[in-house]
Write a protein that binds this DNA or RNA. Structure first.
Lengths: 335, 335
DNA sequence: CTGAAAGCGCTTACAG
DNA sequence: CTGAAAGCGCTTACAG
């Protein structure tokens, strides 16, 4: 181990011939210091290779300059867009961010929450897993750290929340398919435990019922929220005795998988079967064919969540905020 | 502020009727403790809502359980794949990870490096920006924190590195276009400062020269590494007096932009003009048309980087490692 | 197992 | 500006 000993503020102070208190003031950017002294100290820091120990400082002053962000899966472009939105605002505001991914596993979520709390994060943005356990929920309730929920809500928990109106979005999507003359419309993919799924299902059912079409439960096939999930779901759908002429997918990632599956089955999306997604990820316009989808403004959700967190950290007692973004249908040639 | 006072280990110890030392041992999972005592202490923790302060513990024991990961842009699926690779291994190993994105800005990179060091990270994985300033380079050299370079190298710096053989990859891609009968092949996108760009250019030139085709500098058009960059680059290329019949793109993201630009110009990729990308992001197979590209195994780069970092943290004096992954050409219908 | 003490690298508060 | 002291929440080392 060729570890050099860490240079401390006291080392710097001695080297510059000032007191530790003065050095501390300078490192924190105080203005009431003679320019000459400040310069001398800054030079000593340079020379000694001093690195400010923010961890020690935060501990002493009971501050924190980190926040945690827990998402489901970075492989889903929806979350990478959300991450961009969050990250920009948060880094701007001077936070250093811990990132964790749950892959929709409750135990992973537990573990990440624990770790981040043990690291004394100043706040958390959580995109909860589909089936948060009772323990997790109880725990979150007791948390005295600012926490913002994004994308999915958790029942019985009153927290700041940013999401979109899934019911309205799904309604739009399915209604669009109905307008195009479809009657047998499948709802594919997504894990049935999540609020995001349930709301989409609700929008799906609403649209059907509204058009006088009976809901056929066999056309509702859940899956993991991955491309693979989409492939599996469409395969099941195609093997149905009375297979659908159109599919509404849980999200674009699943839609991507559905298209891959259709490809395998030698069916052309948009011709043999209509496909609609959800999210409008940046890639959707370049899918083959370009995907009709519902825009869920992931980046905006991210930046709203960041700003909610920031405000909640500043003022713990402010009123609870619920921000629901309105989705938009984007029609392309897959439907 | 409705902040409860933090419960400390001493509070727990008192509550359980043991000494602080004992409580400390238990919280760290020591085995030489009577089962009865351990149980009592764990119950007290539960009851009081104790949260282990890993920050204080790390400070005292001069440990660290965090690592930093600095990438260019999460919007690029290449990096989200890489992130997945890194993240899995690192979280597995018990680290909590700080994420930073530079958007290829040197000052952002500086800032992120500073912040992470101030947070006492135990190690760093850095995907350096295209033009790291001299200061940054000097600084990195002096760092006594384990640091792994990924994706791009920095001249004059001897560090563990994981990347792929860009020269070979580009050579494959361009050679493929030559085999298809193309003579006027453009190289579009990417920032000319980066080693990744220069190596791709080298592979591009090698392939041309090898086939007896003269390199036409006007066909080499750099850009930002974004979809927008790709759109701009193809527009410039199409306005050339003698426009290309095929384009080799810096990466799939740029290729995506190029295809969007071709769309605007009413040209069909794969028919009117051949397009080849680089990276083989998961979406590439679903582009319209499916994109011929060179696979750069982003996820593998990520997991290799994580494992290098882990090993470097364990043994500072081990030999430098350079891992160069061999790319593979994936032919689809865009060429 | 206990108990008392010292220390990680800072900030805070205060008398001068 | 200085100097000395106390403290953030832990771990470490040691005598008992």
């Amino acid at each position: 181990m060729n570890q050099k000993k860490r240079v401390t503020l006291l080392d710097v102070a001695k080297h510059a011939g000032v007191s530790r208190a003065t050095a501390s003031l300078i490192v924190r950017g105080s203005t009431n210091i003679a320019e000459k002294t400040r310069k001398k100290v800054l030079e000593s820091m340079q020379e000694l290779g001093y690195v400010y120990d923010r961890v020690a400082a935060n501990m002493r002053s009971q501050n924190t300059s980190t926040v945690g962000l827990i998402i489901t899966d970075i492989g889903n472009p929806f979350f990478s867009e959300l991450l961009r939105g969050v990250h920009n605002s948060l880094e701007e505001a001077g936070y250093t961010v811990f990132l964790g991914t749950t892959f929709d596993s409750d135990s992973k979520q537990e573990q990440l929450l624990s770790r981040m709390l043990e690291h004394r994060v100043g706040g958390l943005i959580l995109c909860p897993v589909s089936d948060s356990s009772h323990e997790t929920i109880e725990r979150i309730k007791k948390l005295d750290v600012p926490l913002i929920l994004a994308v999915r809500e958790i029942e019985d928990i009153e927290l700041d929340y940013v999401g979109i109106d899934y019911v309205a979005g799904s309604h739009m999507a399915v209604n669009h398919l109905i307008q195009k003359g479809h009657r047998r419309i499948a709802f594919l993919g997504g894990s049935s435990g999540s609020s995001a799924w349930q709301k989409r299902k609700q929008g799906y059912c609403n649209a059907l019922v509204h058009a006088g079409i009976e809901v056929d439960e066999s056309l509702i096939i859940s899956s993991t929220v991955t491309r693979e999930g989409g492939v599996n779901a469409i395969q099941k759908a195609l093997h149905l005795p009375n297979s659908p002429t159109a599919v509404f997918c849980f999200n674009d990632l699943v839609a991507h998988g559905v298209m891959l599956g259709l490809d395998d089955a030698r069916k052309k999306p948009g011709k043999d079967i209509a496909v609609v997604g959800f999210d409008n990820v940046p890639e959707a316009s370049l899918y083959n064919p370009p995907l009709t989808t519902v825009s869920s403004f992931a980046r905006q959700i991210g930046s709203e969540a960041a700003s909610l967190l920031h405000q909640r950290i500043i003022d713990r007692d402010r009123e609870l905020q619920r921000i629901i973004i309105q989705p938009e249908l984007v029609v392309r040639s897959s439907s």
